[in-house]
Design a protein around this nucleic acid. Sequence first.
RNA 1: GCGGAAGUACCCAAGUGGCCGAAGGGGCUCCCCUGCUAAGGGAGUAGACGUCUAAACCGCGUGCGAGGGUUCAAAUCCCUCCUUCCGCGCCA
Length: 436
Amino acid sequence: MIDIKLIRENPDLVRENIKKKFQDQKLPLVDTALELDRANRAAINEASELRARRNQLSKQIGMLMGQAKKDPTKAEEAEKLKSEVKADGDRLAELEVLEDRYKSELRAVMMQIPQIIDPSVPIGPDDSHNVEVQRFGEAKVPEFEVPYHTELMERFGGIDLDAARDVAGSGFYYLIGDIARLHEAVLAYARDFMIGKGFTYMIPPFMMHGNIVEGVMSQTDMDAMMYKIEGEDLYLIGTSEHSMIGRYINRLIPAETLPHTLTSYSPCFRKEKGSHGIEERGVYRIHQFEKQEMIVVCRPEESMDWYEKLWRYSVELFRSLDIPVRQLECCSGDLADLKVKSCDIEAWSPRQQKFFEVCSCSNLGDAQARRLNIRFKDADGKIYLAHTLNNTVVAPPRMLIALLENNLNADGTVKIPEVLRPYMGGKEKLEKAPAV
RNA sequence: GCGGAAGUACCCAAGUGGCCGAAGGGGCUCCCCUGCUAAGGGAGUAGACGUCUAAACCGCGUGCGAGGGUUCAAAUCCCUCCUUCCGCGCCA
């Protein structure tokens, strides 16, 4: 959400931004917002004048009522004033309804107007125009054939999708034995990696109220992603970012504690509406997965530096697991409405001989902060909206695909990267095992 | 889940319809006094949001857990919800 003042002062900038995001159908919203804003302020002004009058007269009535005990004529005066105040009551009630209506209509419109994107964001209509910025590590194609990841996992007795379908439907999994252990090893390693970078480890709620959902994501994302608990004002989180940012609702953060650099663990639940391609079977796109996340809440002028740091942490982590990656920058049309700038870290798939998304790093600017009222008080006493960022450290089910494929040996075993071995009881490789 | 109590500013806390946007402490800030001190005295201390404004000050409005209602007028009366505490029950 952007500042209404920006629309008042510079509507053309806002329109230009909408065009850059190829959302021309939203252009009329700018005028709608201006109109509602004007009407809203007019209603506020008239209503507060009436309230001021009422307050004043009511005070006089109070005094007259007091005096009426000695002097009965004062009671008549009081009655006269009462009817005067009452006469304004209807108009005030009308204005109050208008105020509420304009306010909520304006908010609804403002929620649809996209965040102003960073000037550095490449312009393009959709994800086909995303830009590869840089590669890290050598993307190798082995001599031997690399099987589909579910087949690899089955080789080590590590997955049962059939039973998961019976129990919860497609999009769920049982991980078993060393694969399950490797999954947890990756999470534990990622957690410690971020703690080593000075981040604070946190485990947030896995459910949240509707108002938090609205604060952290756009309506379209919400419809496509979120599971609601029946009969309760509760949603399952789609990522720990949701409840981690929600934690800051209505907070006035002491400036000296900034930046807040946090790393959170949570399971994530997503509807993943619609059907997906043959390459998204197995544990690639699922309704439930686990993720280690990084969250930063910082001063506005620092958010771009943090953005750079955050995606580099992802690269560093994947490189420490011998997985080649690349940075892919989101173009304007592919950028979610709340985001100022965003990029994906993609891991190399030797089987597909292409990169696939494993991390998503975003600078939300003040968009979430304005929706959720997340502010900080500076040393000079002034109050500003904070900036929020998030990035994946690692989401193990999906990243295991890259891990298994890139560390596959010719003999069919999988090398366990050294950094993970302490979390695997010292084990150096995965070997054939029967499924249980 | 059942029963009971409570939510007032940074903290504690008074306040049951009208000069209450809110007594009194503590804390904090500033000042004064004093050389032996975790002493005494004085002053200040509702922030925030909205509106007005070129902007700021001022003014006005909102604001006593949240949302409704009654009333000329609500911290105060009524309703709903949330949270916390104490019992009982249940459960990792």
